[in-house]
């Protein structure tokens, strides 16, 4: 009996050790450097930036006037939308080589995907539609009609919603992720462009109102908070929202509990879009006028470095692979 107990203990110990070992191996293999894929609209390239070492690794030629970007982390692909050539450029993240160029018959603006990364959703700016692409086939499988000038697009994982901003209609539209039925249309401030969603909330940057709107998806109530001049994009992290003020050359930090802006950080010229690199706890901002990205430490809110990219860096969307 004592012998059997000891044997069980040893087996338990081995199992525990194996779990630790597996955890260590997985953690180690996942511990890659975060990469930013920055669309340089003025020179038809994408800059790949190593965010830990804070330097440009490579420049990749893509289609004409690249704007939108979306990272498919599971598939290790960076999807780039080219507004002038009306194509998608698909970049392999392992090799940083352009894999494929997909012709579209529309101008791609915002790009996102569902949680499983089976489908890509792209806002068709001029035709007031959203195109649904199969990631496997990399082709359009269906489209659905939406409001005017669909711009930003994000996928809400919690409620399985596709959320879009209609810039010239001053609305946010929420669609069922499965059947593309309209759930709700909500009025925001003037010219909502970049949007963000997490949990039961949607955030929009309202360009002509110098504000952000926060929409509660439980009751569709909205709150408006003033920020700087001509805000383009918004992201949130641990109770704070970060907003690019394109004409103030700054980032607004908004305390979401207090419902107001608490600080402005000076960045490069005409900051447009931003994403959070959670590996290194830093905020990455693209500067259209500065042809650069600004890297901000999220502990101190200080700009650590401005890294040169290409001409007219925009990167509209979620541009970090981590």
């Amino acid at each position: 009996m004592i012998f059997k107990d000891q044997k069980n203990k040893i087996i338990t110990l081995i199992i525990i050790l194996s779990i630790f070992l597996l955890y260590f191996i997985l953690r180690h293999t996942n511990n890659h450097t975060a990469l930013a894929y920055i669309t340089n609209q003025g020179e038809d390239t994408v800059s790949v930036i190593d965010l830990s070492n804070k330097r440009e690794l490579k420049k990749i030629n893509v289609g004409e006037s690249p704007l939108g970007v979306h990272i498919l982390s599971r598939n290790k692909l960076a999807v780039i939308g080219n507004v002038k050539s009306r194509t998608l450029s698909v970049i392999d993240i392992n090799s940083n080589i352009l894999l494929k160029t997909i012709p579209l018959n529309f101008t791609p603006l915002g790009i996102t995907s569902d949680t499983s990364e089976d489908r890509l959703f792209i806002t068709d700016w001029f035709n007031n539609k959203v195109a649904v692409l199969s990631v496997k086939k990399l082709e359009v499988v269906t489209t659905f009609n939406v409001g005017l000038t669909p711009s930003g697009i994000v996928f809400n994982k919690t409620l399985n919603y596709i959320v879009i901003s209609n810039r010239d209609q001053n609305t946010i539209e929420i669609y069922e992720g499965g059947n593309y039925k309209l759930v709700k249309k909500i009025t925001t401030g003037l010219h909502p462009f970049g949007i963000h969603t997490i949990g039961h909330y949607v955030y929009s940057a309202n360009v002509y109102d110098d504000s952000i709107s926060i929409i509660n998806l439980n009751n569709f109530s909205t709150q408006v908070i003033r920020v700087g001049m001509h805000p383009y994009s918004v992201v949130t992290d641990k109770g704070f929202a970060f907003v690019t003020n394109t004409q103030d050359d700054s980032i607004s930090i908004v305390d979401l509990n207090r419902g107001k802006e608490i600080e402005k950080i000076a960045v490069g010229e005409n900051p447009e879009n931003l994403s959070i690199d959670s590996n290194d706890n830093q905020l990455i901002v693209t500067n259209w006028g500065g042809d650069s990205i600004s890297i901000i430490d999220l502990k101190t809110y200080k700009v650590i470095k401005e890294v040169k990219t290409g001409l007219q860096s925009r990167a509209f969307g979620s541009f970090i692979y981590q």
């Binding site: 609209q41 006037s65 700016w125 810039r167 002509y208 001409l311 007219q312």
Partner: peptide, 11 residues
């Protein structure tokens, strides 16, 4: 005056 505009700003 405020206009709507296409997607590519020029510099």
């Amino acid at each position: 005056q405020i206009f709507a505009h296409g997607p590519t700003p020029q510099k």
